[in-house]
Amino acid sequence: MAVFTAVSLDDLTLLLKKFPLGNAIAIKGISSGIENSNFFIETERGEYVLTIFENLSFAQLPFYLQLMRHLAERGVLVPAPVPDESGELVVPLHGKPAAIVSKLEGTSQMAPQPVHCAAVGAMLARMHLAARDFPLQQPNLRGLDWWNDTTPLVLPFLDERNAHLLRAEMHFQSAFAACDHYHRLGRGPVHADLFRNNVMFVGERLTGFFDFYFAGCDTWLFDVAVTVNDWCIDLATGVLDSSRVRALLDAYHAVRPFTADEQAAWQPMLRAAALRFWLSRLYDLYLPREAEMLTPHDPTHFERILRERIATPAPELFA
């Protein structure tokens, strides 16, 4: 992610004295994204990722890191957190919480085909099932409560057309979240940010999901909608590619079958997933934090997706 907190090789050398990873060899900041400070690090034992958490507290972080450990132990392909010599997964660095996790093999697939979408769908379903017995609870911190808090902060920056869209969609989503079938949806820990750049592939082989630091307990269907809204679209228009949608949904359904309530909630949930990221990108654009390397994302991308989901029904979850 963006580098808000600089870390030198000397800093890394001191930090690694607490870890069974050998001496520090190299460190390189990762410039993409806007939430945490991430670094590729090389040690005598191999390559890892160091994250300094800019918003999350020491108290919040066990949920994310223990979830990753829980999933890894159950065969879900995710980075494994590395404990320090006392068994802690979170350690202080420059006064902020930090963690080291294993580095996944491969690269992100930024031009996915149906075969890649099918692999993502199947692994996402496996992840949801594997996390059902995860004992820790934390809500999705970018859920409806955050939307309600953030909307009045960004509205003053919007033109009349977009302000109308935001108010109308917030009204729609508040009503949707109050309906009976929404409350019957299956829930549990979700990734909540499973974009193309948060999944690794070697060729057509999926090697892992990473960046779980937006994870929380929410509906499984919201996680599917977030994923479809990125993996299965034409990036220029936001229009869904039906072959990729079908591949992802069918692969997911084969592992964890969708329910009738999820079918009924599918179209509104795709809109909810688009709204969540439109709002966060508006917030990051108009109310930014300073960073050494910052790459804010264009909010108009998710504005287009939201308008498209309102205008055009998506393929159904199942026949």
Score class of each variant (00 low, 15 high):
Ala314His: 01
Gln263Leu: 14
Lys17Arg: 13
Met293Ile: 15
Met127Val: 02
Pro114His: 02
Arg74Trp: 08
Phe201Pro: 14
Arg142Trp: 01
Leu50Tyr: 09
Gly208Lys: 12
Arg187Val: 09
Ala215Ser: 10
Ile30Asn: 02
Ala178Leu: 09
Leu282Cys: 04
Ala247Pro: 03
Thr13Cys: 13
Pro20His: 10
Gln138Tyr: 07
Tyr283Cys: 09
Val239Pro: 01
Ser8Leu: 03
Leu206Arg: 08
Glu160Met: 06
Pro20Tyr: 13
Asn162Asp: 15
Glu204Ser: 10
Leu270Lys: 02
Phe176Cys: 07
Gly33Pro: 06
Glu262Ser: 03
Ala254Lys: 05
Leu279Thr: 04
Glu88Ser: 12
Pro112Phe: 13
Trp146Gly: 12
Pro156Ser: 11
Pro257Ser: 05
Glu160Gly: 05
Pro296Glu: 14
His94Asn: 15
Ala111Tyr: 01
Gln66Tyr: 10
Pro189Asp: 11
Leu141Gln: 05
Arg142Asp: 01
Leu89Tyr: 13
Tyr64Phe: 15
Thr295Gly: 00
Thr237Ile: 14
Asp84Cys: 06
Phe40Cys: 08
Ala130Arg: 06
Thr219Val: 04
Thr259Gln: 13
Thr5Arg: 05
Leu93Ser: 04
Gln137Tyr: 06
Gly46Ala: 09
Cys179His: 00
His183Asp: 05
Pro152Gln: 12
Asp230Val: 10
Leu124His: 03
Val76Met: 07
Tyr213Pro: 07
Arg281Trp: 07
Glu42Ile: 02
Phe212Gly: 03
Pro299Phe: 03
Ala314Cys: 09
Leu14Trp: 07
Ala254Met: 11
Ser8Arg: 02
Leu124Ser: 05
Val115Leu: 06
Asp84Met: 04
Asn198Val: 11
Lys103Gly: 00
Thr312Glu: 12
Tyr252Val: 11
Pro139Cys: 09
